[in-house]
Amino acid sequence: MAISAEREGGTVVAKADGRIDGSNASEFQADLQAVIEDSDQALILDFESVSYISSAGLRVLLLTAKTLEGNGAKLALCSLSEPIREVFRISGFDNIIPIHDSQAEATAAISG
């Protein structure tokens, strides 16, 4: 699991890859916290290269969403593979975190 981030105005686009599970969830959490700044309005997580996410990974997303919400900022996901999309569907997390097909769609939705 690795994360790389780019900033566009008040929006951070971060890409994660590989497996996100109990063995690296705290690292994932620290990485996400490191890319968010107080002034940010939104974080878009590009999951195109994520092959697996466990409930420990979902928990990090939940905590991140709550942190951002506390700052009045938003979290969105994009470019999920079908199995990952299924994890969000089964867990019901697609009820609380908006999921978009592409980065462009996510950016449009957040700025719109």
Binding site: S55, L58, L62, R89, I90, S91, G92, F93, N95, I96
Partner: peptide, 14 residues
Amino acid sequence: PLTGGIALGVLGGF
């Protein structure tokens, strides 16, 4: 089919 529910402990009032 799923029943559309979210994991418990995530969102109060669901």
